[in-house]
Simulated assay, not measured.
Amino acid sequence: MKLSWKRALRPAAALAGVLALVLLPATTAAAAEQSAPRSAAAASSGWNDFSCKPSAAHPRAVVLVHGTGGNSVDNWLGLAPYLVNRGYCVFSLDYGRLDGVPFFHGLGPIEDSAGELSAYVDRVLAATGTDEVDIVGHSQGGMMPRYYLKFLGGADDVHTFVGIAPSNHGTTLLGLTKLLDLFPGLEDAIGGSAPALTQQVAGSGFLQRLNDGGDTVPGVEYTVIATRYDQVVTPYRTQFLEGPNVRNILVQDRCPVDISEHLTVALVDRVTFHETVNALDPAHATPANCFS
């Protein structure tokens, strides 16, 4: 009996582990470094530089919102410099931090994280002297701002929202989340420690409230960028939004041989970078392909 009991718990333990690691940045080794020097380096290169003033060509600052288990630096080591080099004022925040957990953020209640985003956007608007920002987010960061837009008045301050591999309608984790139904108390245990994990499970109460009444709000331009090979937010088509102001993009429609998955699609994928800039500046958009 003892052996059978242990075997029965293995799937639950595996699910807890997957949920706990979901969307950790691919640069996990880099997260062991001191955060202050990395932040200083980002600022010195024009990223998170609060003296930056948007230009006539790019009149809105871009706020980057990391994913679950990510942070304001590691999640954006590729895209932030890409945008800075093209003349954008770029900012990123840490949100959803838990006491005693360094580097790995986005774990707290998503409603609270949306409030943190609201305050950060206000700070960026005050520093740049502009009326609106654009937001680009990855995974939870590509979904959480929708709460800010819908319930916290963010639609008045945001022009364009780009979600990269976003958990818009939750995830099944390739079916692993069904194990939550088989082990009573497991969901409460995980959610009690890191609420954002279970809030992103397909069918959660949080997601039902977020998506009730429609995916979008008026006045904001939405772009969703997804990859067919996403192994975290599954099925990948649940990432897409419906609404009059939406562009849904599948990376493989631009480059059939692109094999980016959930992490690399935001960290290094050139199609994603290209389409992000197209969304931020549609008047000068150019076709994205394997050679972008």
Rank of each mutant, 00 (worst) to 15 (best):
T27I: 04
A202T: 06
D122W: 11
G205I: 09
H66C: 10
Q252H: 11
D156T: 13
G108R: 10
S113V: 08
I164E: 08
Y148F: 14
R254P: 05
I110Y: 12
P287D: 15
Y229R: 08
V84P: 04
W76I: 02
G214N: 05
V257H: 12
G106E: 10
L241S: 10
D94W: 10
D269A: 08
I190C: 09
A114V: 01
L173D: 01
V62Q: 06
A31N: 15
S45K: 05
C255V: 10
V201K: 01
G78Q: 00
V265T: 14
S292T: 15
V18L: 14
A165D: 13
F183S: 03
P256E: 12
L180Y: 12
Q140Y: 03
T130P: 08
A194L: 04
V101W: 12
N211E: 10
F273R: 07
A196H: 10
A189V: 13
S118D: 08
G108Y: 04
G141M: 02
H159F: 09
A57H: 06
Y88V: 02
L83K: 14
D253P: 07
V233A: 14
T276W: 08
L182N: 02
T272D: 01
P184S: 00
S167M: 10
Q199P: 13
A288W: 02
G17F: 07
G142L: 05
V162Q: 11
T227I: 02
T130G: 14
R86C: 00
V101G: 06
H66R: 11
M143V: 08
T160P: 01
S45C: 03
E116H: 09
A283N: 12
H284V: 01
V257C: 09
K53T: 15
S44I: 01
S193P: 04
L77I: 13
D157V: 13
G142A: 00
K178F: 09
A196M: 05
S4L: 15
S260L: 07
E187V: 11
L174G: 04
S45D: 05
G70Q: 07
L24T: 06
T177K: 03
T198Q: 08
V18M: 13
M1V: 14
R254M: 11
T223L: 02
L173I: 09
A8C: 03
A56V: 12
T227R: 06
P145D: 02
R86S: 04
G154Y: 04
A36T: 14
C255G: 06
T238K: 14
L64N: 07
V65S: 08
I164S: 13
F104D: 11
Y120I: 00
E111R: 15
N211P: 02
A285R: 03
L186H: 01
E275F: 12
A80N: 04
P145N: 09
P54G: 06
